[in-house]
């Protein structure tokens, strides 16, 4: 197709640019906010170029936290990281194994098992929050990483994703493995797992961000400040009754909170592309 319409191109770029500005400006503002002291931010006329307080703000946030959060942000980030990793890895493990069972083994009530897993799609944490809280509390898992992670692992998205993927793998591959003397475990390890790398990467990205952004569940089951996650930390920093909000620290924390998901996306994106280029069914 030959197209030479400069005016049209210009319009397209303009619309695109507007979209980018709308999305990116608040992020820029947060980054800006993390480079000024409290006074500059609170007088309401924040300059549009970065200030010189970045070093102070970031070291204060990371090492000691704000007055209100009581814990250093590095601690919160560690908590969030453990939770997000736990959810992502736990979910991948459980869903790939359950999908393997549902697709490749025929056992009584296989369909039933699949439908029970499927139904949990309709039950996100918010819906089952009371019984889940009760169980976690009865098991003595309040204020523990296990309590933060386990209830969020249980859901069907991953199982469905892997099931759909496994169903696209030709049966002959399983049969060839059988003839080559590979049992179910070997087939899983040598064939299914290497072929699933891209799916695993996709699920990891989605679940890591899902775990990192959790708010309601950690808010409910963590009472100790040493267990709080960064999302809760930000919330605590900006809701105050009597004291002045430390906006520079809140902004710094917000920027810090953005970094790990961005890193995960960037790192995994490379794996995505690699996977897409290298594997073929």
């Amino acid at each position: 197709m030959v197209e030479n319409r400069p005016y049209r191109d210009l319009m397209a770029y303009l619309v695109l640019l507007m979209g980018v500005v709308i999305v990116a400006f608040p992020v820029y503002l947060a980054v800006l906010g993390s480079t000024f002291d409290a006074a500059t931010i609170s007088n309401g006329n924040m300059p549009l170029l970065p200030g010189d307080q970045a070093g102070i703000n970031y070291s204060q946030a990371l090492l000691s936290g704000g007055r209100l959060a009581r814990e250093p942000v590095s601690m919160m980030m560690l908590n969030s990281f453990i939770m997000a990793m736990g959810i992502a890895i736990g979910k991948i493990l459980i869903s790939i194994l359950s999908a393997f069972a549902v697709v490749y083994f025929s056992f009584p009530f296989r369909k039933t098992a699949f439908w029970i897993i499927f139904i949990t799609l309709m039950l996100p944490v918010e819906v089952r929050i009371y019984p889940t809280y009760k169980i976690v509390a009865d098991l003595g898992l309040l204020d523990t990483y296990a309590g933060l992670i386990l209830p969020l692992i249980a859901s069907a998205t991953g199982t469905l994703l892997f099931r759909q993927f496994f169903m696209t793998i030709p049966d002959e591959l399983l049969e060839a493995s059988k003839i080559d003397g590979a049992g179910p475990f070997r087939f899983f390890k040598d064939t299914l797992l290497p072929l699933s790398i891209t799916t695993i990467a996709a699920l990891f990205v989605i679940q890591f961000i899902y775990g990192w952004n959790q708010y309601l569940w950690p808010l409910l089951i963590t009472t100790k400040s040493s267990m709080q996650t960064i999302v809760i930390g930000i919330k605590k920093m900006i809701t105050t009754q009597d004291a002045l909000t430390e906006w520079q620290i809140a902004m710094t924390t917000a920027v810090l909170a953005m970094i790990p998901p961005v890193l995960v996306v960037i790192f995994m994106q490379r794996l995505f592309v690699k996977g897409l280029v290298e594997t073929e069914k």
């Binding site: 030709p170 002959e172 591959l173 049969e175 060839a176 003839i179 040598d190 064939t191 290497p194 072929l195 290298e278 594997t279 073929e280 069914k281």
Partner: peptide, 11 residues
Amino acid sequence: MVFQNYALYPH
């Protein structure tokens, strides 16, 4: 056995 779609391990 030799299969119709070869069934080679793609990875």
